[in-house]
Simulated scan of single mutants.
Amino acid sequence: MSGFHQKPNTYVSELTLKVQDLKRSIDFYQSIVGFQVLEETSTKVRFTADGTRAILTIEQPEDILPKQERTTGLYHFAILLPSRKELGKFIQHLAQMAFQIQGAANHEISEAIYFADPDGNGIEVYSDTPSSTWRWQNGLIEAENKSLDFMEVVAEGKGETWTGLSPETILGHIHLHVADMDKTEEFYCRGLGFEVVIRMANHALFFSTGNYHHHIGTNIWNGLGAPKPLDNSVGLTHFTIIFPDEETRIQVAANIQKLGYEVTNFTTTYPSGNKIELGV
């Protein structure tokens, strides 16, 4: 596991999505993404990369509606591979499956590809560049949006056969559509204890702990004041943030309440409708 995703850092560890067709999504997340099924019921499936730790849960409510556009909620969740070699093997796998991606980039801090599941839930698969090469200025990290050199990355895979996600794969970060930047910064910094590490003018903020390039991304690309999606529409149900110890979790819950947000059984909901579980 990445050192940025363990104590003493705070990070995102798991998320739950609503989908329209559970069987269709199971096939996608196994055959295309490479997850293993950890637990399965008639309405819910938990996926893992290492056979022990859940990364993604999908569920199919009875009255599920298609994904609503121009709302708050999930922009994408990001699967972090342990090496550039694994990213190369994954890209080669997608090519062999003739699977169409939506985009790719070399951000200097990471190399990534982007696509969506059958319901339109955004997915990023990426590997980090060495943190020693990341450039910081005035407490903010410098990220680029260069073209990804597919041939060079695939060559890192050395022609090895892809057999699914590496057991070292984790949830690297989550990126959310929100309705308000000022409230978002207050909530994630003063409430949850993250630090701003990337500012994109007045339309996107990225947060982390421990000098990671980001554990959480947020944007208003669906519009300032974008509405919440319906509770029964395809999309994000909730995600889990892991704190280093119980003392920190209790303090964070108190901080959130001081800002005027409710916390029930260590679960809170940011005004944009993004539900968050506070874990240890």
Results as ranks from 00 to 15, higher is better:
L87I: 06
I109K: 03
S83A: 09
V19H: 03
L94N: 03
G279S: 15
N265P: 09
F207I: 00
Q30R: 15
T163Y: 07
R46M: 15
G279Y: 07
G225L: 04
D119K: 06
T269S: 13
E186R: 02
F4G: 12
I242T: 12
L56K: 02
K158T: 09
L74H: 05
G223T: 09
T240K: 12
F115V: 02
G279K: 10
S110A: 14
T209K: 01
D180H: 10
K85N: 14
I198W: 01
K7C: 12
E124W: 02
R46A: 15
L236G: 03
T169I: 05
Y188D: 00
Y270E: 15
A112H: 03
S131L: 10
P8F: 02
H213I: 02
G260K: 06
I55W: 03
R249A: 06
V45E: 08
K89Y: 02
E62P: 07
K146I: 06
T163N: 14
F207G: 00
H175F: 03
E247G: 06
K23Y: 04
D27R: 13
S31R: 13
Q20H: 06
S42H: 10
H76G: 07
R84C: 07
N9Q: 11
A179S: 15
T269F: 04
D50N: 15
V33Y: 09
A254D: 11
H93V: 04
H5S: 13
I141W: 01
F115N: 02
G122V: 02
E246D: 11
N211K: 02
H214S: 02
E144R: 10
W134L: 09
M181C: 12
L65I: 06
K275L: 13
A98Y: 05
F77D: 07
F115A: 02
L259S: 01
I91R: 08
S208E: 01
E69H: 08
F4L: 12
T57I: 11
L224C: 12
L140G: 02
N274F: 03
Y75M: 09
N232A: 07
G217W: 00
L74M: 12
A105Q: 07
L224F: 13
V263M: 10
F35V: 05
K85A: 15
I198Y: 00
D231P: 10
I109Q: 08
G139V: 01
D63K: 09
V154P: 01
H213K: 04
T43D: 15
P82Q: 11
G51Q: 13
Q257I: 09
W162L: 06
M151R: 14
H238Y: 11
W136F: 13
E185T: 00
I64N: 05
L56W: 03
